[in-house]
């Protein structure tokens, strides 16, 4: 029997590889986006801190740029928040 492939549709799934399922700030799943975004993925990326905790970039930026002193620390572990360069 001979099979000729005339065409195919590629399907791929993606997911963020994070050490948690949900963002500790907005409590939305990482595979979904923060409240201000419409589409997950590159439009609403995740960032990791040097403490290894992970958040939607938009969420942690809002926290760090807030007016309280304690905001300079990770909302999970209170270590100084510094983005981990990959």
């Amino acid at each position: 029997m001979k099979v000729t492939i005339k065409g195919y549709t590629g399907v791929a799934v993606w997911k963020w590889v994070a050490n948690d399922d949900t963002c500790g700030i907005c409590r939305m799943p990482f595979d979904s986006c923060c409240n201000d975004c419409k589409y997950p993925g590159d439009d609403c990326p995740l960032v990791w801190g040097q403490c290894s905790h992970c958040f939607h970039m938009h969420c942690i930026m809002k926290w760090v740029n807030g007016n309280q002193k304690s905001n300079q620390s990770c909302p999970m572990c209170r270590q100084a928040w510094k983005i981990k360069e990959k």
Binding site: C59, W63, Q68, S70, P75, R78
Partner: peptide
């Protein structure tokens, strides 16, 4: 007060 963190619920 000042020790609030966004990850608290």
């Amino acid at each position: 007060k000042d020790q609030w963190a966004a990850a608290m619920t």
